[in-house]
């Protein structure tokens, strides 16, 4: 499995602040890779280094096998960092035409891309009147129209309505599956990431806190959800491995022990309506890796201290 991104001991400091702290990461070619982390975790800093917008303070970084910022490599990358901005006096079509010319692209298929991101009707409107969601769509079209090998998207669905989010998710998925483009995306919408990404990296304070396939990360918190009666008897069998989840019980047992547990419950006279494995969602993994949210009292304390 070849890597599109390789970082070793990557560090970026702004004065006393270490935005990236010795980050070593390998992002494989193909599929959709999610980069998660709380604000200030270093996601945007990593993206800016990958795109040659800023230089690292230390460490190594290679993008598509070359140094970050290498012009030949940059032309193979499409990107959208945060909410994109465009010259306000230009129409959506003119923006794409301008960027296609900047790229030296003769066959950018501008109308096809406007259609693909749902901006055909707004193609001749000036972007100064665009909503955030429309700007996001135009930014995605701008990132993709030059047929890059690698696409970096920072919060691609920010500001979009639910149908727009669904369309964007389908577009991103089709790019990875049908066009073979490697996509790296950052998002705070963990459910979206869980749905669309194949692998994720979780950043915390400039370091890599967790990395792996989404299914592997969430499997660590997998539970057997039992809808059964009487609940008290189930609790008695499972002891502290059981937690109540509404009318059901979540059993913290390894998948291999599932059949034996079900047999034992039936022998105890438990009437099982439904038993199914439920994974932990990405949000629980995220919270476990980045620490719990601070309480209002902790926030007040931090403010007084700072």
């Amino acid at each position: 499995m070849t890597a599109v991104i390789e970082t070793t001991g990557l560090t970026k400091t702004y004065g006393a602040v270490r935005a990236l702290d010795g980050l070593s990461l390998s992002i494989p070619r193909g599929g959709i890779y999610g980069v998660l982390g709380p604000n200030g975790a270093g996601k945007s800093t990593l993206f800016r280094i990958l795109l040659g917008l800023i230089r690292p303070t230390g460490g190594e970084v290679r993008v598509l096998g070359q140094h970050a910022g290498d012009p030949a490599v940059m032309r193979r990358i499409g990107s959208m960092i945060e909410t994109p901005r465009f010259p306000p006096y230009m129409t959506a079509r003119q923006v794409l035409q301008w960027l296609a010319l900047a790229h030296g692209s003769k066959d950018a298929a501008i109308d096809a891309w406007l259609d693909r991101v749902g901006l055909t009707e707004a193609a001749n409107r000036r972007v100064r009147g665009f909503s955030v969601g429309m700007l996001q769509r135009l930014g995605v079209a701008a990132a993709l129209m030059t047929k890059p090998d690698l696409v970096i998207l920072d919060e691609p669905t920010s500001g979009m309505d639910p149908p727009g989010i669904q369309e964007m998710r389908a577009l991103i998925r089709s790019l990875a599956d049908d066009d073979g483009v490697t996509i790296i995306l950052a998002s705070h919408q963990l459910l979206e990431v869980q749905r669309v990404c194949d692998r994720v990296a979780i950043f915390n304070r400039g370091k890599l806190a967790a990395e792996g396939k989404v299914s592997e990360l969430t499997a660590a918190g997998e539970r057997l959800r039992l809808s059964a009666t009487p609940l008290a008897r189930i609790m008695g069998v499972l002891g502290d491995k059981a937690t109540l989840d509404g009318d059901a019980v979540l059993a913290a047992v390894p998948r291999a022990e599932g059949p034996a547990l079900l047999r034992a419950l039936i022998e105890q006279g438990v009437d099982i309506d439904e038993a199914r494995w439920v994974g932990a969602d990405l949000e629980s993994v995220f919270m476990a890796e980045t620490g719990p949210a601070r309480t209002p009292a902790q926030v007040r304390e931090a403010l007084h201290a700072g």
């Binding site: 040659g52 032309r75 990107s79 901005r85 010259p87 900047a102 790229h103």
Partner: peptide, 17 residues
């Protein structure tokens, strides 16, 4: 200065040296 004013440098800086 337009690319600073409209924050569009990052759109084109990846497309050339």
């Amino acid at each position: 200065a337009g690319d600073y004013r409209w924050e569009t440098w990052r759109l084109i800086s990846a497309r050339n040296t």
